[in-house]
């Protein structure tokens, strides 16, 4: 997601290997990719930042050991 002023642009991946600086990260627990996007839109960035959203873990799998289908 690209941040510019109040504008947010969602750019679909896949992305190549990051050569830029990674300045920080969050781990979020959300019900869906779309919910994560909605949360990310609320992030207080406004000067051309970019944030990549990646699935790192499946909460249901964490709780039960089963993979979510």
């Amino acid at each position: 997601m690209h941040f510019n002023g109040r504008e947010r642009v969602v750019i679909d991946g896949p992305f190549t290997e990051a050569k830029e600086l990674i300045a920080g990260y969050w781990i979020w627990e959300c019900a869906s990719r779309e919910e994560a996007i909605e949360w990310l839109k609320r992030a207080p960035f406004d000067r051309g930042e970019e944030v990549e959203l990646r699935l790192v873990d499946d909460a249901r799998e964490r709780l039960t050991g089963e993979t979510q289908v």
Partner: peptide, 14 residues
């Protein structure tokens, strides 16, 4: 379907 999931997401948040 993605819009609906997004609306679900907004609903959960708001």
């Amino acid at each position: 379907s993605a819009t609906h999931r997004a609306i679900d997401g907004v609903w959960r948040i708001e």
